[in-house]
Computed example of a mutant assay.
Amino acid sequence: MQKEDCFYLGKIVKKYSFKGEVLAKLDTDQPELYENLDAIFLELRNNLVPFFVENSQLHKSELLRIKFEDVDDEADADAIIKSGLYLPLATLPKLEGNKFYFHEVIGFTVTDKNFGDVGTVKAINDATAQSLFEIDRDGIEVLIPMNDEFILKVDRDSKTILVETPEGLIDLYLEE
């Protein structure tokens, strides 16, 4: 399995018990979706290695407590601490309407209701307090906050996102 065919689910942050159980911090708004996994890929030395899950359950709501097959003691658990967790993109639940996964909208065309064609989504910046669409407009970077009030429609068939941004926002990027 290649990394580009997968999505990042989270990271193993610490050991939980002397029987090899670990706690993973998940990068999701819905950790309960991942409570009963059969298998998961761990990133070990830049390779994705499949691990089978004996059992898993939510721990203090934001962490997932996982017992992997063949990880039976603290030494085994130590070997996988800080490993990234990945799942195949095909396992993501399909989102409807204006909800979307960040990777899904890369390459979509963004059109503003008042401004017109803005450009193409080249990346999502989620390192800021509010996630931003990074849009390429003929070599000029335009940033639009991913605010529910701004996003009017996500059309997967035509690969377009219709937004309505505050007046003047897009112009800020285009003025010389």
Rank of each mutant, 00 (worst) to 15 (best):
N147R: 09
L169I: 06
E69I: 08
L152M: 14
L42I: 04
T109D: 15
I124H: 01
I124P: 05
P31R: 00
N114Q: 14
K94E: 09
K67P: 03
E167P: 06
Y8H: 13
E134G: 03
R156E: 08
K15Q: 12
D38K: 03
L162G: 14
Y173R: 04
N36D: 09
D73S: 10
G107R: 13
V110T: 08
K113W: 07
F150M: 15
A39T: 13
K153Q: 13
L85D: 00
S61M: 05
G10Q: 02
Q130C: 12
D171G: 13
K122S: 11
N98M: 12
D76A: 14
F18T: 13
R45W: 05
D29V: 05
I40N: 02
D155M: 10
T28C: 09
K122C: 10
P88W: 00
G84W: 03
N147G: 06
K153M: 11
A79Q: 15
E4Q: 14
D76H: 10
V110R: 02
I170L: 11
R45S: 10
P31S: 07
G168A: 11
L85F: 09
A77F: 08
P88A: 00
I81Y: 03
S158R: 10
C6G: 07
M1Y: 04
M146G: 06
F108Q: 03
D136C: 13
L42P: 01
F133N: 05
G10A: 00
L87E: 02
D112F: 03
N125I: 04
L132A: 09
L58Q: 01
L132K: 14
I80H: 04
F133R: 09
L89N: 04
A39Q: 10
T91D: 04
D155F: 05
V105K: 07
I144H: 08
Y86N: 01
P145G: 13
E69Y: 13
D112K: 02
A39N: 14
I12W: 01
D112A: 07
Y173T: 08
A24Q: 02
S158E: 15
T28I: 05
P145L: 02
Y34V: 03
E74P: 12
E35K: 00
A127N: 15
E149F: 09
I80P: 06
S83P: 10
L58Y: 01
P88I: 03
Y34H: 02
F100A: 02
L132G: 03
F108W: 10
I135M: 01
K15G: 05
F52L: 15
A24H: 09
L87W: 00
I80V: 08
L64T: 06
K15I: 11
P93Q: 09
L132N: 14
P88V: 02
L89Q: 11
D70C: 10
L162Q: 08
S61V: 02
D29A: 14
Y8K: 06
D73Q: 08
F102G: 00
K3I: 11
H59L: 07
D136Y: 05
G84C: 15
I170G: 09
E104P: 03
G119L: 06
C6E: 00
I106F: 09
G107K: 14
L26W: 01
